[in-house]
Design a protein around this nucleic acid. Structure first.
Length: 430
RNA sequence: GUGUCUAUAGUUUAGUGGCAAAACUUCGGUUUGUGGAACCGAUAUCGAGAGUUCGAUUCUCUCUAGACACCCCA
């Protein structure tokens, strides 16, 4: 049956999902470490949530009628019959965790950061993958406008630390339940008046998610949207005050923003503040949204919480930041540049090679090696190519004497050092 | 889901309707103890299938995969 016949077609990684290796891997790790550091300084605590959740969790929070839920979710049925979905975003899972662990009874607000892969079955293109990576910030349990400012500020700081120079925040408000309902009614009426000029797709969307028609790029819709009612006009005094305060905070922090009346965002749970962050410096290709978020005061009750859980969150795309031309490589802490290359000659030396490498590890001295090679020539050649300043040569004679030859690759000078003095000796070298 | 472009060695790229090239990498050797090197050798059913043709890697069609754009989003 199962003869190990070689496959004609080699395996490939699934569409829109990539292997992350070498420097790119470290770029992700470096960005994560920087983001984590900033988040912690601003008071956020870590949380890691499962990569899969009940499918229904996303359907009730993100909302039917959104592309994310209707077309882009990876769903699976477990052997036990559970209907699960790979997470397409963080917020729903974080809110679930907040409720599940009774975080309401801790000191409010709860500030959480998380990071990791997310999955959307989209068609891949520049800056868009089926498995992509976000860094996520949430402030749960407060409706104060400073929380909105805090989240935006933290994100802006992180992205600027990653190298962005011309960040701009698109911001809008769709108000609270009252404002939102009034606005939606008015907006729907408006579109119904123009339904004859609207493309079929837009008519369909009018039934499910009329807000999304606002940021349509269809020329017909853009024309119609010019005179569409604006959400800010329907804000009740309380919502208006909230927006005004957020903008005042942004002004005070010198964060560049523009009020974008058509910004509504793809998820249906948003209330009050919604925003997206762009970098305006790369002009030849259209700027991609680096991150976005908003306030979601009713999400908690949607998930069954008896008490309202006002909250705000945002996420930025790590892939998009790393691929940006302005990204300045953030080196992760682990990425120490080795300054030594270990060379062994003969079987006796090979036997003792790994213990020596471990002595160096305990002394926190990273070392390169090619233990699988035998000849001195080829090992020296590889050492040369790797650009390390020193090689450690360990042969038959040294194995007997418990010593190592330390060779300076620049001026070719050599010195024999006893193994028990080796760590100390290397540490003193420049 | 729609459209555009692309597919030759591990990588980057040449090239032609008539034996498929180069550079770099990798592995082995000349050379088991002092190198940045040289030389020799190894590595491709030219993405898959069909058609046109005496002959197709080259031309045509289909498929597959990838990149990009639309939709949407991070």
């Amino acid at each position: 049956m199962s003869t190990n016949k070689p496959r004609k077609e080699p395996f490939q990684s699934p569409k829109g999902m990539h292997d992350i290796m070498g420097d790119v891997y470290y770029a992700y790790q470096g960005l994560f470490e920087k983001a984590q550091e900033v988040a912690v300084y601003y008071g956020f605590k870590p949380i890691a949530i499962p990569i899969v959740e009940q499918q229904e969790l996303f359907e009730t929070t993100i909302g039917i009628g959104t592309d994310i839920v209707d077309k882009e979710m990876y769903t699976l049925k477990t052997k036990g019959g559970d209907q699960l979905a790979l997470r397409p975003e963080f917020t729903a899972g974080v809110m679930r965790a907040y409720i599940e662990h009774g975080m309401q009874s801790e000191t409010q607000p709860i500030m959480l950061y998380s990071s990791g892969p997310l999955f959307r079955h989209d068609k891949p293109q520049r800056g868009r993958y089926r498995q992509f990576h976000q860094f996520n910030l949430e402030v749960l349990g407060t409706k104060k406008s400073i929380a909105d400012a805090l989240v935006i500020k933290t994100a802006v700081v992180i992205i600027e630390e990653a190298g962005a120079k011309n960040l701009i925040v698109d911001i809008n408000s769709i108000g609270d339940k009252e404002s939102r309902t009034n606005y939606l009614r008015e907006l729907t009426t408006y579109y119904k008046k123009h339904i004859n000029q609207m493309p079929a797709e837009a008519r369909e969307r009018l039934k499910t998610n009329p807000l999304r028609l606002l940021d349509s790029k269809d020329p017909k819709m853009i024309a119609i949207n010019i005179d569409a009612p604006e959400s800010v006009a329907f804000l009740n005094p309380e919502s208006k005050k909230h927006l005004k305060e957020v903008l005042e905070y942004l002004d005070e922090m010198n964060i560049v923003y523009r009020l974008n009346k058509n910004l509504v965002r793809g998820l249906s749970y948003y209330t009050h503040t919604v925003f997206e962050i762009f970098d305006e410096s790369d002009s030849e290709v259209g700027p991609l949204s680096l991150g976005g978020g908003g306030r979601y005061d009713y999400l908690g009750t949607m998930l069954g919480s008896k008490k309202e859980i006002p909250a705000i969150g945002m996420a930025f795309g790590m892939d998009r930041i790393i691929e940006s031309p302005w990204y300045t490589n953030l080196a992760p802490k682990i990425n120490k540049k080795p300054k030594c290359y270990f060379i062994q000659l003969g079987f006796d030396a090979k036997l003792k090679a790994l213990p020596i490498i471990d002595i160096l590890r305990k002394g926190h001295i990273p070392v390169l090696q090619s233990l699988t090679k035998d000849s001195l020539t080829s090992q020296l050649a590889t050492a040369e190519r790797s650009g390390v300043p020193y090689t450690l040569i360990f042969g038959q004679k040294e194995a007997l004497e418990n010593s190592v030859i330390v060779r300076d690759m620049v001026n070719h000078s050599q010195k024999t050092v006893k193994i028990d003095k080796l760590v100390e000796y290397i540490k003193e070298m420049k």
